[in-house]
Design a binder for these strands. Structure first.
Lengths: 351, 351
DNA sequence: GTGAAAGCGCTAACAC
DNA sequence: GTGTTAGCGCTTTCAC
């Protein structure tokens, strides 16, 4: 149910009440066949310019738009891209991560630009692993973008092995079968830790849970840098998705005997939380504790003090994802991309 | 182009390579008719339980999923809701407002919960006013949710007059024809200003551009409260969508001869910017200047000091929007809702 | 340049 | 219970 038509079915300035919902209706009005109307509305060249104009004008008057379902069924092209956010088990049933949301915004822009509609799905991988197939196999989309792999890399791999037009945002791991666009997370983690070390921090901690591959790589990079410098790096697995990060962070920071002087945060959001915890417990940033975030979301500039962070090129990443996907839809075998991260030095480190 | 099937077309553990893409294919395999397969897969009761199981098992083996396009065309029910974000002229071509993104996340949750897909469109109302009709009239969605009216209230009104299943987030204005869910913005603005006044602020300013009706109402509410108290309220029309809010705010605050003591901000984002500007220019919050935000986004708790703000119930609003839309899809004439705002006192005011 | 006809893959009457 | 039939509204050969 639910009317799916706009327009009141009457031509402007006329009292006639002809319902025109189909090509055939309009064809009758124009005195041509449905085929001609179809061609005219599609702007095909084979139609007499004058008839085409007339038909288009008529369509405008009656507010007629061809039914997309029928069109897509017939032409076997949906013009839509599925965008899926797999929510790992650790997360609440809520799309709220500002990084994903920002990426989503950019994807919406890129897809619209390319003439695609965007079908958004929130997937909760609960037991049965067909959350992705439900989208790839629905016949509703020409391709799929997966925002973040969470802990579902295996599922994505499996599906991608037989469904080509799929690109994910995330990490590249050894043996990974699916096409991904993302940042060099290990390098990012290393940059962050090295910067802290260069700024004089000696006791380091990494804040963030490492079930997602991306975060694990950031941690590994930071750990490598710490080891190279012969310094300790504590791992504090705070949960990203949670509003109650504060208590976790405080507990963790208080728990260790030694006060940490340098915090590598798995995301800007965690960094903001840490910033606030330190503020509340009376420790000065960057004088007592130095902090580096990850992502460089717009809000990283708005914190007080502004956040030193490892930038991911989100807009560029969105562009690449869509470009790569379009290539794959056309049958080309586009590779993934690893983008270099960039350290943005602001005021939470003593540079 | 673009394969839209997953599965490799062969049953698990068998070498057979039968392509099963249609109901007819599966019907042949199962030795029944297409109609029966359709009923079995839809879980209809009229099918022999045993045949149903067998068919479903077969479908699973071959990774078969009925084509949604065909299904929807035939059943005249799309199972999708269009979500549109009209970007007013003042904004960049980018969905980035964290309030909208947060609302979008909640809408995605609610719609998924109700079994609907979500078709996201970014609409740029450029000249021709058919950005909404393109969605309502496409036959692709059972209903439409509009996130924010921007300066397009007239267009939404016009479309809504003949397209019933439409609900927007935003303001209720006199003479408004479309169904909206939103907060009592004038009351919110009043609460903010009254609180500042009660906390001792005497020179007030409202930060935010008022082309969108919601913001205009917040301003009006604040202005009314100021007038009732016999106090001045300067209007500083900073642009919401812009990363360069900082300079605008600084210029505006520096420009006026008198230093403002109380800032009513049109959004939490503007409040964060103001917070930072004041920090940079060495004015203490809340000692010198007090600030009230609007929205109560999660990040309002993360600022230093945490933001006093006027809370909008975003999750509840999303739930209401979907509930209202579902009613309208079923033909009921659901009214809109005005939700009460709530002042959340944190640390940017001297309560 | 235009019309007629044949489906796209599915669902829903209607028979049996 | 299940098969058969007739479309959903459009696009696209194929004639003319």
């Amino acid at each position: 149910m639910g009317e799916s038509r706009s327009g009141n079915g009457s031509p402007e300035g006329s009292g006639a009440l002809v319902e025109v919902r189909t090509l055939a209706d309009l064809a009758r009005l124009a005195g041509v066949s449905a085929g001609t109307v179809s061609r005219a509305l599609a702007g095909k060249a084979l139609v007499n310019a004058e008839t085409r104009e007339r038909i288009q004008e008529l369509a405008r008057q009656y507010g007629f738009r061809p039914n997309q379902m029928a069109s897509k069924l017939r032409s076997r092209r949906t013009g839509a891209i599925g965008v899926v956010i797999p929510l790992g088990h650790e997360q609440r049933r809520q799309i709220s991560d500002p990084f994903f949301l920002t990426l989503l915004g950019h994807l919406a822009d890129e897809l619209t630009e390319s003439g695609y509609d965007l079908m958004l799905s929130r997937a909760i991988p609960d037991g049965t692993a067909d959350w992705l197939e439900r989208i790839t196999g629905s016949g509703m989309v020409d391709g799929v973008l997966v925002i973040g792999q969470a802990d579902q890399s295996a599922v994505i791999d499996r599906v991608a092995s037989s469904y080509r037009p799929l690109v994910s945002w995330g990490a590249h791991q050894a043996g990974q079968a699916h096409c991904a666009v993302g940042t060099d997370n290990a390098l990012g983690g290393r940059l962050a830790a090295e910067h802290l070390i260069a700024c004089g921090a000696r006791r380091l901690a990494f804040l963030g849970e490492t079930t997602a591959a991306e975060i694990a790589l950031r941690h590994a990079g930071a750990a490598a840098a710490a080891q190279a410098a012969g310094l300790p790096l504590t791992h504090v697995p705070v949960n990203l998705a949670d509003a109650e990060m504060g208590p976790q962070i405080k507990a963790a920071l208080a728990g260790t005997g030694a006060a940490h002087e340098g915090l590598v945060c798995a995301s800007d959001l965690i960094a903001m939380s840490a910033l606030r915890c330190l503020h509340e417990t009376g420790r000065a940033v960057p004088a007592d504790v130095q902090i580096v975030g990850f992502d460089d979301l717009p809000l990283a500039q708005q914190t007080a003090p502004p956040l030193t962070t490892v930038r991911q090129e989100i807009a560029e990443g969105a562009r690449l994802m869509v470009e790569t996907l379009k290539g794959r839809i056309e049958g080309r075998d586009m590779p993934g991309t690893v983008m270099p991260p960039r350290l943005i030095v602001r005021e939470t480190t003593r540079h």
